[in-house]
Design a protein around this nucleic acid. Structure first.
Lengths: 234, 234
DNA sequence: TTCTCATATAATCGGAGTTATTATTGGTCA
DNA sequence: TGACCAATAATAACTCCGATTATATGAGAA
């Protein structure tokens, strides 16, 4: 699958991931101070520059905070940039995956109808066409499973693009990461797209007709029924 | 005011900000390749480590992408992490502030009712008490304007905290940054809290009563009327 | 209690070697 | 002669290193 990742390349990113996962797993607790720079250097066997960049990555994701003399401390979870796909993948390794999935559905149920509404309001004809193209690829009988899943994800992302709201895009990126995991699960459980395809079409038609209310409500319906399909089988 | 910032300390962060602003301002366009490392070093007069950390910051915020042989290129705006308060402050220097404010209201109108609903559902008694405490500080007659504004922001943040959904928190952080700008503007325009105080109280009461529907609808009402107050006067 | 100073720690510096990607060149095959 | 493939070279980011500088804290003296 490997839709996510792409950002775990490079030595600093890998070290940041190691430490980040130790934090999400609770091995490193909030308020703990990491070993001082020199000690970690010896322990990891990398150079200052590399470690420093790794810590900088963790810092920009809100995981740690470095102060001279005090050392580098783990920040509280509320500062973590949970919408970062990389952070999501770290948390995915933790053991509260069901809670994570439920929280994600909560926010999708609130955000995706908004995206559909705005796509209906502001999307250009070209953008609407791209949403339709994604739908057609998804509906294509001959398409393989892989392609259909890709098209499904693309369908949702194109809606976010057409919404022309830049605050939606970071949310879209985490939804993309989540879909690449949840769609195959859903399909395996219920044996295919099922009514999901019809629901996608309803959203598409509403957006193209610039019917904001219907676009929003059909989007909500889709998320809600996806949610049910995921949790019936769990 | 200075509620934002805090992350613009340090030389790398300042350089990242300089470059980041040049990108949001359009001085550096999408697809442009930055000067190669050695040249920027000479131009900026800083060390490799510093520049490297600055670029790493920009990279984690989705602004740039570095590839060997190709150089470091500016990524499309859809990859920017717009929910990062620092990124918001960079964009605030650009000239499309009204559009930015409108997009923010759109997302608040969708997210804050959800937060209120979840706070009603899952918030602990202690967390509800903290929301109430923030409300009381806001309502306090003797309180100065500064304190009232701080309390107003705190009220919203406490609701996000009580919602127990980790995907909401990154959105909360950008809302915090935005509120610290928009509240004073709103108050200056309409001469005080006005009916806003009563609306806050309605949300509080609904959350404490664990009445999810009312919590969500009153939160929507508050955002909508705040939106109107901001755009009537603009 | 307050101010000063020593100290520990992160922040910054600059240079050099390594690795990965791409463009170019040369050759081969149709 | 044309197009395509493979080896090669060049370029820029990546990694490493050791030293120096700035700063915050805590101890000690006034």
């Amino acid at each position: 699958m490997k839709v996510i990742a792409r950002e775990d390349r490079g030595l600093p990113a890998r070290i940041a991931g190691d430490i980040g996962r130790r934090i999400t797993l609770g091995e490193l607790k909030v308020g703990d101070t990491l070993p001082k720079e020199a000690d970690m250097l010896a322990g990891l066997g990398v150079s200052r520059t590399t470690l420093r960049e790794a810590l900088k990555i963790l810092s920009t994701k809100g995981f740690i905070e470095a102060k001279p003399r005090l050392g580098t401390r783990v920040r509280a979870a509320e500062h973590w940039n949970t919408l970062d796909p990389v952070v999501l993948s770290w948390q995915g390794d933790a053991d509260d995956q069901e809670a994570l999935a439920e929280e994600l559905f909560e926010i999708r149920l609130s955000i995706e109808p908004l995206a559909a509404r705005l796509a209906a309001r502001r999307g250009s004809a070209r953008e609407h066409a791209q949403i339709r193209a994604a739908y057609l690829r998804m509906a294509e009988e001959r398409a393989g499973l892989e392609e259909a899943i890709e098209a499904d994800i693309d369908f949702h992302l194109q809606i976010f693009q057409a919404a022309h709201n830049r605050f939606l895009l970071p949310v879209a990126s985490v939804i993309r990461a989540a879909l690449s995991i949840s769609i195959p699960k859903t399909m395996a459980a219920s044996g295919g797209f099922g009514q999901s395809l019809a629901q996608h079409e309803a959203i598409l038609v509403a957006i193209e007709a610039r019917d904001e209310e219907t676009a929003a409500s059909t989007a909500a319906t889709l998320i809600a029924s996806t949610y049910k399909r995921n949790f019936q089988t769990a």
